[in-house]
Design a protein around this nucleic acid. Structure first.
Lengths: 180, 180
DNA sequence: GATTGACATGTCGAAAATGACACGTAGAGT
DNA sequence: ACTCTACGTGTCATTTTCGACATGTCAATC
């Protein structure tokens, strides 16, 4: 049940609409690396948060667009979730990683084919993230921009790690193939 | 809907009981980094797979323990899931990473507190994984052991990446604190 | 011989997520 | 004027997952 906290966290940096939140959770760095959700989950959850007084409606914009902002109660809830909760084992779903774990059941040639695909994918993704991060250079700006910058940095690093691991795995699997 | 594939993948390396599968998906490397599930999801899913003929019952052991093995149909299903499906954006839930993304909403001191906790956690985890990996040295053994080895290697590398990223993030946040 | 703890499998109701469908709007290009 | 695309919000039925509860076994320790 982390979706409400994801929404509170995004709204804590700056007010956004349900549409923008959905975009971030469906395609943005947060959705890709942390918590993916479609708009069909986001809108009902926003209404729940509204009911609990954790967010507030900031009136309507152009096409029925409604912008939400976090309230003080929302901030308190978010802070206690981040600070008081233990770090312990928690919810985890990562389909790409699952695929990679299961790769060893394929014969080495097939596994290598898939690993190459994985490498292409993380390369593309890392390039996108670098573009998103580019305007700020090497230092994290304070405020809302810093948020995205730190997230993007995380993505780039994880992608790089996956890439190297995949290459290592290819090498290991190749050895099995060449020396049966 | 990746749980069935996770189970098929584990059973593809060697036959296991529902209990063992549950353990792996709840606490093992697969559960931690790829797809977490409790026994209450595993047992019903095993019966579903049994009904579809993707796994087979290998008779009873000591305390009502029943061991399952993957069938040829199961292997075909697993292979096509791994090979035919696109790598594209897929299911993703990662509560620890979500927490880290949201850290920037805390004041720097609080954020640093949590980041230190995160570092402790990944250090502990990485140490466990290294222990699990230790018996095999630096080379991946063929067969079922190789599976666990490659998974553990992935875990160690990701933990290391998270660690370095967290340190980097602390540094960045510290700058904001010292130069307001 | 009793107790404890890991082993082992399940059900069931509540909560959450997914996918399909539905509807309307503003702007940009042709 | 027309069309296309992205914007923008929602419902609803189905599927998945979670947490609580239930039940019993085997081995080791006290």
């Amino acid at each position: 049940m982390s979706l409400p906290h994801a929404l509170l966290g995004l709204l804590a940096t700056e007010p956004r609409s349900g549409y923008e939140l959905s975009k971030e959770l469906a395609e943005g760095p947060v959705g890709r690396f942390a918590w993916k959700a479609g708009h069909t989950s986001v809108y009902p959850e926003l209404n729940r948060l509204l009911g609990k007084g954790l967010i507030a409606d900031r009136g309507e914009g152009p096409r029925g667009r409604r912008t939400y902002a976090i309230t003080d109660a929302g901030r308190r809830e978010l802070r206690s979730w981040l600070m008081d909760d233990p770090v312990g084992p928690s919810k985890m779903r990562n389909e790409p990683v699952l695929r990679m774990f299961l790769l060893s059941v394929l014969d080495p040639d097939d596994a290598i084919t898939v690993l190459r695909r994985v490498i292409d994918h993380v390369d593309t993704e890392a390039a996108e993230l670098r573009r998103a991060r580019a305007p700020y250079g090497d230092t994290v700006p304070p405020g809302p921009e810093g948020f995205g910058h730190i997230a993007a940095e995380f993505g780039v690093r994880v992608d790089q790690t996956v890439r190297e691991w995949a290459l290592w795995a290819i090498d290991q699997l190749s050895r099995h193939r060449s020396t049966p």
